[in-house]
Amino acid sequence: MNKKSFHEDTRYAIALKDGNGKLRPANIYVYKLHDDFMIVRFTDKSGTLHKIAYDDVTRIVKTIEVAPDARYAVPEILLAAKTWQNRTSMQAYGSSPRAGK
């Protein structure tokens, strides 16, 4: 996969290689696309933000566009490439205006 395979503010069901190289299903919400990686939130797990390399995604199973009023929001500085140089995950809470938060 590459950057052109994904879009910001979109949900995906994907096949993802874990740390041991095994394929695992995952549901993600894409916040930001960078040249070599994307910043996502696993929608079926905790609200932690994660950095995922495009090469770790082997297949996109389902794509769901998110309406503007249902998109999750986090401060832009948390999504900057410089913030993610030395980390792979970050505890941050994102919410949607539709969720009332």
Rank of each mutant, 00 (worst) to 15 (best):
R87C: 14
R87E: 09
K62A: 08
K82V: 12
Q91C: 08
E65N: 09
M38H: 01
D44L: 07
D35Y: 05
D35M: 10
I77M: 07
R59T: 05
S96V: 02
A70P: 01
L49P: 03
V66G: 00
Y54L: 12
L49V: 03
G94E: 05
D69S: 13
Y72F: 13
S95M: 12
Y54C: 14
M90L: 15
D36R: 14
A70M: 10
Y72D: 07
D69L: 11
I64K: 15
L79I: 01
A80E: 11
Y54I: 10
K45V: 10
G94C: 08
D56E: 14
P97T: 02
P97W: 04
K45F: 05
K45N: 13
M90K: 09
F37S: 10
A92G: 04
A70W: 02
T88Y: 11
A67Y: 04
K51L: 09
T83F: 13
A67D: 11
R87I: 14
R98W: 08
I77T: 10
Y93K: 13
V57C: 14
V66H: 00
G47Q: 07
T58F: 04
P97E: 04
P75C: 00
I60H: 02
K62T: 02
R87S: 12
F37G: 11
A73F: 08
A53C: 11
D56P: 04
R59I: 02
L78T: 00
M38I: 03
Y72N: 09
Y93A: 14
G47F: 02
A80T: 10
D36L: 13
R87T: 05
T83V: 08
R98Q: 12
I52R: 08
K82F: 02
V74C: 07
D56R: 15
R41Q: 13
I64R: 14
I64W: 03
Q85W: 01
V40D: 03
I52M: 12
Y72R: 11
H50S: 14
Q85R: 14
I39D: 03
L79F: 01
E65G: 02
D35F: 05
K45M: 12
K62E: 10
M38C: 07
V61I: 13
A80N: 10
F42H: 08
Y93T: 13
A53D: 15
A92K: 05
Y72I: 04
S96I: 01
R87Y: 06
N86K: 13
E76D: 12
R71P: 00
Y72T: 01
F37T: 07
F37C: 11
K45L: 14
S89Q: 12
Y93F: 12
S96Y: 04
R71E: 06
D35Q: 15
N86T: 06
N86V: 02
V40L: 07
T63H: 01
Y54M: 12
I39C: 09
V57F: 04
L79T: 00
K51W: 02
Y54T: 09
M38F: 00
R59F: 07
A80D: 13
K82S: 15
I52N: 10
N86F: 11
I64M: 13
H50T: 03
A70E: 11
F37I: 06
